[in-house]
Amino acid sequence: MARPASSRSTPRPPDPQITSVQQGSAVPPVEGHVVLLGRSGCHLCAAVTELVAAVAAAHPELIPDGAVEVDVDSDPALRSRWGDHVPVTFVDGVLIGYWYLDRDTLLAALTEGPTRVRVIP
């Protein structure tokens, strides 16, 4: 039997004391032009790291300070939020890819501005 509409609870606004990782948002855990979330021993993470390094070497003006790399296993909240989705790539705070990243997507994000992925994990 369905509950009457009047007995439904009103959704609560996000608690400002809870971090974005806990709320499940797609916000990078650190600041940086290009932020990579990964883990040691992850072959997909290594491939994305190599791709970003190659783009930075070919176009130093696009990634002048290199990428900021974060090990999701260094923090239980990060591991819980992103552990099944690494590698995760952010450009200017926007999630542009997880699991895989291709050169065209990275270059477009760096030159034309990042486009958020359609499905956020």
Score class of each variant (00 low, 15 high):
M1R: 15
M1H: 10
P4K: 12
A5L: 11
S6T: 15
S9G: 14
T10V: 15
P11Q: 09
P11V: 09
R12G: 07
R12W: 14
R12Y: 10
R12S: 15
P13C: 10
D15Q: 06
D15E: 11
D15N: 12
Q17Y: 10
I18K: 12
Q22E: 14
Q22S: 04
Q23C: 11
Q23D: 10
S25R: 06
S25P: 00
V27N: 11
P28G: 03
P28N: 11
P28K: 09
P28M: 13
V30S: 04
G32N: 03
H33P: 03
H33M: 03
V34Y: 05
V35C: 13
G38A: 01
G38L: 11
G41L: 05
G41I: 14
C42V: 07
H43M: 05
H43Y: 11
L44H: 04
C45N: 02
A46W: 14
A47S: 05
A47F: 02
V48P: 00
E50Q: 12
E50T: 09
V52I: 15
A54W: 10
V55G: 00
A56W: 15
A56Q: 05
A58I: 09
H59I: 00
H59V: 08
H59Y: 08
P60N: 11
P60D: 14
E61C: 02
E61W: 12
E61Q: 10
L62M: 04
I63Q: 00
I63R: 01
I63L: 04
P64M: 13
P64C: 05
G66H: 07
E69K: 14
E69Y: 14
E69M: 14
E69D: 06
V70Y: 12
D73Y: 03
D73I: 02
D73P: 05
D73L: 11
P76L: 09
P76Q: 06
A77R: 02
A77N: 05
L78S: 01
R79Y: 07
S80L: 03
R81P: 05
R81A: 00
R81K: 02
W82G: 04
G83K: 04
D84E: 09
H85M: 11
V86E: 00
V86Y: 09
P87K: 06
V88T: 15
T89G: 06
T89W: 10
T89D: 02
D92F: 14
V94I: 12
V94Q: 11
L95N: 03
L95K: 04
W99Q: 08
D102R: 13
T105R: 15
T105K: 03
A109N: 04
L110I: 01
E112S: 12
G113F: 15
G113P: 06
G113T: 08
P114G: 02
P114K: 15
V117M: 06
V117N: 12
V119K: 12
